[in-house]
Amino acid sequence: MEIVKSKEFLGEKPWASKLIANMDGITIKLHWTNEPYVWHINDGQEVFAVLDGSVEMFYKVGGQTESALLGPGDIFYASAGTEHVAHPIGEARILVIEAEGSI
């Protein structure tokens, strides 16, 4: 049993994470960041939930780049093969659920 106060989590570097749980190969991690990630495609599906702050999520649909502004409580679902990149606006804390070892 553990209680995690997400607003108190501060990583040592951008995209630092705290492993909350690993459930049969699916990881749930709390991330802290103040810098963009890199364009990537996960090895499977990903659920990206903004807990604190704002994130502009860029993603490609049919080769075209689109974006959505995500705030606290907003969730981005990346199906397998979705190319995407997160750009926080200031500091953000994000809960990411994905297959273990995915980027």
Rank of each mutant, 00 (worst) to 15 (best):
E2T: 05
I3N: 06
V4W: 08
K7S: 13
G11I: 02
G11M: 03
E12F: 00
E12S: 13
K13W: 13
K13V: 13
P14D: 01
P14A: 02
P14R: 00
A16L: 07
S17D: 07
L19V: 14
L19S: 08
L19I: 12
A21R: 03
A21K: 05
D24I: 00
T27N: 07
I28Q: 11
K29C: 10
K29R: 13
L30E: 00
L30F: 08
L30D: 02
H31I: 15
T33I: 02
T33A: 05
T33M: 04
P36M: 06
Y37G: 07
Y37W: 12
W39G: 12
H40K: 05
N42S: 11
N42E: 05
D43K: 11
D43P: 00
G44Y: 14
Q45S: 11
Q45E: 15
V47Y: 12
V47F: 14
A49L: 15
D52K: 04
G53E: 01
G53T: 03
G53R: 01
E56N: 15
M57T: 09
M57W: 04
F58Q: 06
K60D: 10
V61G: 10
Q64E: 14
T65M: 12
E66R: 01
E66C: 08
S67C: 15
A68T: 14
A68N: 15
L69N: 14
L69Q: 12
L70Y: 15
G71S: 09
G71N: 11
G71F: 05
P72S: 15
P72H: 12
P72Q: 11
G73Q: 05
D74Y: 02
I75C: 14
I75L: 15
Y77K: 13
Y77G: 11
A80N: 13
G81V: 11
G81R: 09
T82D: 10
E83H: 11
H84D: 11
A86H: 04
A86D: 05
A86S: 14
H87D: 12
H87K: 15
G90M: 01
A92R: 03
R93V: 00
R93F: 06
R93D: 00
L95F: 01
E98K: 06
A99Q: 10
E100N: 04
E100Y: 01
E100V: 02
G101R: 02
G101E: 05
S102V: 10
S102E: 02
S102G: 15
S102H: 09
